Simulated assay, not measured.
Amino acid sequence: MVWLHIRRALISMGLVVLVSGCVSQSDGDAGAWFAYSEGLGPTQDRLFICHGFGCIYRSPVRYSGRDTGHLRALLARGRASPAAEREAIARAVAWNERRVAPEVGSADDRGGLDLHNAHVRGQMDCIDEATNTTSLLLMAQTRGYLRHHTVGRPVSRGFLLDGKYPHATASIREKQSGKRYAVDSWPRGNGKAPDIVALKAWMSKDY
């Protein structure tokens, strides 16, 4: 089971790792990630939530005007500065995980490396988490809810040959400085705030 999960993770991330060395040099096209992950990109009012590890399952969740209004209000609290917006993004990602949980069955999604839950509906690995966070942030960006950041393509680190387990995360770029940040909701369970850290620091960290 462990090897099967590793193999699927490598297939899911393979193009990202091989083509761009963990995508550490450029943002790339965030929308192109959905071709790599075999996921479905966000629409104006719907996200396709990945779960089951490696985006095996994709559950459509429609967002009402009340939902998008709440998302806008959460992100508006960060308009004063880039740092404030990153804090607002963390709150929005946590809110979204709670929002989709009843429809996806992910309320008890466990954080971190949890291979025995592979292929279990509602459980998410880093591919699922990176895809879902990117979907949410793209929806927010399209609607004009982000002032200080743009959404990047998910990035990855580790490919076994370097002794590290493959791991992916969503990413954002600060407009003013060009500095990139990981938005990583994988280490914690459902509805918890993600780690938002400088991408360089994230790339060097072992979980």
Rank of each mutant, 00 (worst) to 15 (best):
S64P: 08
G65D: 13
D67R: 04
T68G: 00
T68V: 12
G69T: 03
R72W: 06
R72Q: 15
A73Y: 01
L74E: 01
L74W: 08
L75C: 10
L75P: 02
A76K: 07
R77I: 00
G78D: 05
G78R: 03
R79K: 08
R79T: 13
R79Y: 12
A80K: 09
S81W: 01
P82C: 12
P82R: 11
A83H: 11
A83L: 11
A83P: 01
A83R: 11
A84I: 03
A84Y: 13
E85T: 08
A88L: 14
A88Q: 07
I89D: 04
I89L: 13
I89S: 13
A90M: 00
R91Q: 15
A92Q: 06
A92H: 08
A92I: 02
V93F: 01
V93I: 15
A94R: 09
A94S: 09
W95D: 02
N96P: 01
R98V: 03
R98S: 08
R99D: 12
V100M: 09
A101C: 07
A101G: 07
A101D: 02
P102A: 03
A107C: 00
A107S: 10
D108M: 02
D108S: 14
R110Y: 01
R110L: 15
G111S: 07
G112Q: 01
L113N: 06
H116Y: 15
N117E: 04
N117Q: 11
N117I: 01
H119S: 06
H119I: 08
V120M: 14
R121I: 11
R121Q: 14
R121P: 12
G122V: 12
G122F: 09
G122S: 09
Q123V: 01
C126E: 10
C126S: 14
I127G: 04
E129S: 06
E129D: 12
A130Y: 12
T131M: 05
T131F: 01
T133V: 15
T133F: 04
T134V: 10
S135C: 12
L136E: 05
L137Q: 05
L138S: 01
M139A: 14
M139C: 02
M139N: 04
A140V: 01
Q141E: 15
T142W: 15
T142K: 14
T142L: 14
G144R: 03
G144C: 01
Y145V: 00
L146T: 02
L146G: 06
R147Q: 09
H149W: 12
T150D: 15
V151T: 15
G152P: 00
R153F: 13
S156I: 03
G158P: 03
L160T: 05
L161A: 01
L161S: 13
L161W: 14
K164N: 09
K164C: 07
Y165W: 07
